[in-house]
Simulated assay, not measured.
Amino acid sequence: MMGLETIPWADLAPFIAVGFFAQLVDGTLGLGFGVLSNTLLIALGVPPPAASAAVRTSESFASGFSGLAHIAQRNVDWRLFARLAVPGVAGGVIGVWIFALVHQPVLRPVMFAYLAAVGTYLLWRGPRRPHTYRRLRLVGPVGLIGGFLDASGGGGWGPVVTGHLLAQGATPRVAIGTANAVEFFVTVTVLAAFIRTLGFEAFTIAAAGLLIGGVAAAPLGALLVRQVPPRLLVMLVGGLLIVTALYGLLALVFGPIPAFPRY
């Protein structure tokens, strides 16, 4: 049996910190775990394919704990959950199938342009209108597209689903909590579809560190989303969407540059 003294904490520490920060942002704002953890892993010198595998592996577990934390804080609307879950899982399966057949590089710049537009709208709308719950008309299609992009584009559930729900006028706490809860099922579906490719090699030190940090931050993120004022939440989500879109577009043009080759 492995004791605590045999665990390589020095090697795990940077990845635990990355996972904690990424999940704290994701649990509070409903998006960001994938893009933040992937970006920071690459900055630590992890090769992009290994970073993507580690993020996907850890996210499937961290999103589960995050969903449970949001359920415990009563941030989940179960009717909205049901409307998102089935289309989201179906979109993930379709995305994996499309990804296996042909990679479509045009998909990512289109998604980033869309996220920038939604983020700009949320920044404009946040301080101007009160955000109270109203009937949401476009839920199933948003879940389908979010699941599809999460699988075929390497991420996208949180930015697309949370951003679009907020743009439609959903209560920020409910939109973020419900999107986080559904994300677990979408991520597990995508991971299961990719498992033949990833195998047990996906469970690296980086993945383990992300998982530990993500699980530790999950309850705190679910608690913070209840404390932050709704208008500020909407503006923070809008700002993060714009930053995500700009980073994605720059990465497509210049490519990621590892900063710490030691890892």
Rank of each mutant, 00 (worst) to 15 (best):
L4F: 12
E5C: 03
I7A: 05
W9S: 06
D11Q: 13
G19I: 14
Q23G: 06
V25A: 08
D26Q: 09
T28S: 10
L31K: 05
G34S: 10
G34L: 07
G34P: 07
G34H: 07
V35R: 03
S37E: 07
N38T: 12
L40Q: 07
L41E: 11
A43M: 15
P47A: 13
S52V: 12
S52P: 04
V55L: 07
V55Y: 05
S58Y: 05
S58D: 11
S58R: 04
E59A: 15
S60M: 11
F65V: 15
L68D: 09
A69N: 09
H70N: 14
I71D: 00
I71P: 01
V76I: 11
D77C: 08
A85C: 11
P87M: 02
G88I: 05
V89L: 02
G92S: 08
G95Y: 04
L101A: 14
V102S: 11
P109T: 03
V110Q: 00
T120A: 15
R125Q: 13
G126W: 07
H131W: 15
T132M: 12
R135I: 09
V139L: 03
P141G: 10
P141F: 07
V142Q: 00
G143N: 08
F148E: 00
D150P: 00
A151W: 02
G155D: 05
W157G: 06
A167S: 13
G169K: 01
G169I: 01
T171Y: 00
T171N: 04
T171K: 01
T171M: 01
R173D: 10
V174M: 14
I176K: 01
T178G: 06
T178I: 12
A181H: 07
E183H: 03
F184Q: 03
V186N: 00
V188P: 06
T189M: 03
V190H: 02
A192E: 04
A193V: 03
A193M: 13
I195Q: 12
T197H: 14
T197F: 11
F200N: 04
A202Q: 08
T204C: 02
A206S: 08
A206W: 00
A207E: 07
L210E: 10
A217H: 03
L220G: 01
G221W: 03
L223Y: 15
L224W: 10
Q227S: 02
P230Q: 00
P230V: 05
V234E: 05
M235F: 02
M235T: 09
G238H: 06
G238V: 06
L246Y: 07
L249I: 14
L250F: 11
A251H: 09
I257E: 13
P261I: 01
R262G: 15
Y263I: 11
